[in-house]
């Protein structure tokens, strides 16, 4: 069965969608990606849709689902490279992908994830510091 490859890059997963997804393939992607997140303990997921010319409400729902499911497993999702025509159409359709981060390209998406991860780590350290303070 045809599958979309998922690449692991450090703490992140990268998926590049190169074809117009039919529904089965999209659902497979959702499953595969979520199990990969749980297996690898990835902290972020990048989905590159720069080659996708049509995003309808089904595809939008898949993207939303991936983001919500990953978040529960402590990973943020960034959708990168959406084409202008697709963005205009989604807005007109009323689909604004709430809860999904977006970036212009993979590089900027990676930056965004690093920043999110960085501030998370900083927060964790702060909390640990607080803990230490209290211990003393």
């Amino acid at each position: 069965m045809e599958r979309i490859p998922i690449l692991k890059m450090g703490p992140f997963l990268l998926v590049t969608i190169q074809v117009d997804l039919y529904d089965r393939l999209a659902l497979n992607l959702e499953n595969d990606l979520i199990s990969m997140v749980s297996q690898t303990g990835a902290r972020g997921v990048l989905i590159d849709i720069s080659a996708v010319s049509i995003v309808d409400s089904f595809m939008g729902r898949i993207l939303g689902n991936i983001a919500s499911m990953s978040r529960i497993m402590d990973a943020e999702t960034v959708v990168v490279g959406m084409q202008p025509a697709v963005a205009i159409t989604l807005v007109e359709l009323g689909l604004t992908l709430q809860g999904v981060y977006t970036a212009l390209n993979v590089e900027k998406g990676m930056e965004l994830l690093n920043k999110k991860l960085g501030s998370d780590l900083a927060q964790d350290e702060d909390e640990e510091d607080d803990q230490d303070d209290r211990d003393e």
Partner: peptide, 11 residues
């Protein structure tokens, strides 16, 4: 853009 709108609607 108009193409994308129509195809999405059709979908």
């Amino acid at each position: 853009v108009n193409q994308t709108k129509l195809i999405t609607a059709a979908s």
